[in-house]
C-alpha cells in the first residue's frame, strides 16, 4: 500500500540527517549518521507492511494469516545492533580524535582553514 505519510516523514528524516552529516562538528556528524541509519530501518519495516499481527505464532491463538513480515524484522534487528556498534565506535573515535588533535572541527582536522 502506498505510504504517503511514511514517504514524507522518511524524506524529512533523511534530509535532516544529511544536513547534520555535513556539519563541521564531528559530534553532529555522528548524530546525522544515527538518524539516517534509524530512518533506513524504519523504511525497511515499512516495506514489510504495517498491517497484520506480530509474527509470533506460539500461544498467539492463531487469529488469521495476516501477520507482519518476519523477514524484514529479522533483517532490521540485525541492522539495529550493527548500527549500535557503529555509533559506539564513532563516538569513541570522536573522543580519541579530540584527545589526539585537540579539536572536533572537521575543517581543522582536514587541514583546511
Amino acid at each position: 500500500m502506498t505510504q504517503f505519510v511514511l514517504a514524507t516523514v522518511l524524506g524529512l528524516l533523511f534530509a535532516l540527517g544529511t544536513f547534520l552529516v555535513l556539519r563541521r562538528d564531528v559530534v553532529r556528524v555522528v548524530w546525522g549518521v544515527t538518524i539516517v541509519s534509524q530512518s533506513a530501518n524504519v523504511y525497511l519495516v515499512t516495506m514489510g507492511g504495517l498491517e497484520g499481527l506480530a509474527p509470533v505464532g506460539h500461544g498467539h491463538g492463531g487469529g488469521g494469516t495476516a501477520v507482519s513480515d518476519p523477514l524484514v524484522q529479522a533483517l532490521v534487528l540485525t541492522a539495529i545492533v550493527i548500527g549500535f556498534g557503529t555509533s559506539a565506535l564513532a563516538l569513541v573515535l570522536t573522543y580519541r580524535v579530540y584527545q589526539e588533535h585537540g579539536t572536533i572541527d572537521v575543517y581543522e582536522l582536514g587541514g583546511d582553514q
Partner: peptide, 22 residues
Amino acid sequence: RDAALSLVVGVTVFVTVLVSTA
C-alpha cells in the same frame, strides 16, 4: 548549499519510498 543537497536527498528518499511501497 548543504540545505539544497539535503533537500535533494530527502526528495530522492520520498520518491523511492513512494515507488517501492506502491
